[in-house]
Nucleic acid binder design. Structure first.
Lengths: 225, 225
DNA sequence: AAAGTTAATTATGAATTCATTATTCAGTCA
DNA sequence: TGACTGAATAATGAATTCATAATTAACTTT
């Protein structure tokens, strides 16, 4: 019998924060759209109070924007925001890489190796969905390996905001190949527990992601004109 | 006549977030204490709804901890939390230092120089209050100079959580002198716009703060036994 | 008297209600 | 026809109410 399940019942607004954030990150609620309180309440079967509490939290996390007497709108994904977010995220990843080399245990490295293999397989079969999933798992496992809750929570927030961008721009074949190379290097550096090397590589990896994203966005803009 | 004042009236819960956060940061509400909803509502003259909304936000920021059906408690300041927070804060300061060297304008550097002079004066007259204020202004001005909103908001959050610790431990004369030296170096590197140097120095400065804090906490622990 | 049990009280989470502010839309006038 | 006005409608922010869970107090029972 599992006792923790019945005890650890999350409160209503916490669940709503999770679900609404997912709606934003997964691009179900589109940037700029206003969040329809009443509609969401009906479809989720809750009253406005916990939903509004959740919206305040989401606003403080930057996923929605509140306007007095005008409710909440989904925060838009601007190029400027990305250009501000990625450097911060990159620095946090650098720190995570350094700390992970010191603190991660062997079992976790093996787990990452397996997910790394999954990722390579997904790359070879050009399965974007599986690739993204494996990629995300690897990064998360590395962050967890850093053994720093504060780092983890701030990383999670920024990663969520960045994840929205991937729905806007598909990565190029060229960038995809480069990303694979970078991951190969990261894997080796982690196994060698080269803190400085892994940190720098992870930072660079993230900044290269930004370059690719900006390029993709520019290409998209052109195609729209 | 100033028209912007009357328009930009912040919403009730936003004001409450600010005020409650200050109560926590300024150590009016002590770590571990439970937050008395009813009492606060009475003394602030608001109903529970906006207050509770504010508490959810504060919880997501890490200043209070919510327990289902047991309300909110002020988050405790543990040594472990500090040891997790400082490295993250230090990395953010490093990034801020690098970006500030690129983006800050001359007028802002001059402003920082003036506050730096104020800080030296406060040090010489051993005015802790004035010293802390000038110190905080300098760091904030540097962050602003980085021209990165995301960086700024995350820094603000972590800085707030760290600030609580200074109420728990007074810094030693030795550390104080060291901090002054570090600030002198930072000032020179900023004026020279040495991005790498300023970043590294600011990071080190922050990590030294942690060491001093941990030492002070240990000394305090001993004196209590 | 101390530990355990039950009833009264209080606090909490969430729904509902209410006042106010935006928004929509029909009607007016240039 | 098209911009303006104002009433009708809808939404939002905040207070209030209500059901339930936690805490306290009173009361056994040994």
């Amino acid at each position: 019998m599992n006792l923790t399940d019945s005890i650890n019942r999350p409160t209503l607004h916490e669940e709503l924060v999770e679900r609404l954030r997912n709606l934003v990150v997964e691009d179900v609620l589109k940037p700029g759209e206003k969040v329809p309180e009443k509609q969401l309440c009906d479809s989720l079967g809750v009253s406005r109070t916990p939903l509004r509490e959740a919206l305040k939290v989401l606003a403080s996390e930057g996923f929605v924007v509140l306007q007095a007497n005008r409710g909440a709108r989904v925060a838009s994904v601007t190029r400027e925001e990305m250009e501000n977010t990625f450097p911060v995220l990159a620095t946090l990843e650098q720190l995570a890489g350094e700390l992970a080399c010191q603190n991660i245990d062997f079992a976790e490295i093996e787990l990452i190796e397996r997910r790394h293999a999954d990722m390579l397989k997904a790359y070879k079969s050009r399965d974007r969905q599986a690739y993204f999933k494996a990629n995300q798992d690897i990064h998360q496992a590395l962050i967890r390996g850093a053994r720093n809750d504060i780092l983890q929570s701030h990383h999670k927030l920024l990663a969520g905001r960045v994840r929205r961008a991937r729905f806007m721009a598909n990565l190029s074949d060229e960038r995809w190949a480069q990303a694979i190379d970078e991951h190969e290097a990261m894997m080796e550096l982690l196994k060698a527990r080269d803190a400085d090397g892994l940190g720098k590589t992870m930072k660079l990896h993230m900044m290269n992601k930004l370059s690719a994203l900006v390029k993709a966005l520019e290409a998209e803009d052109e195609s729209l004109c």
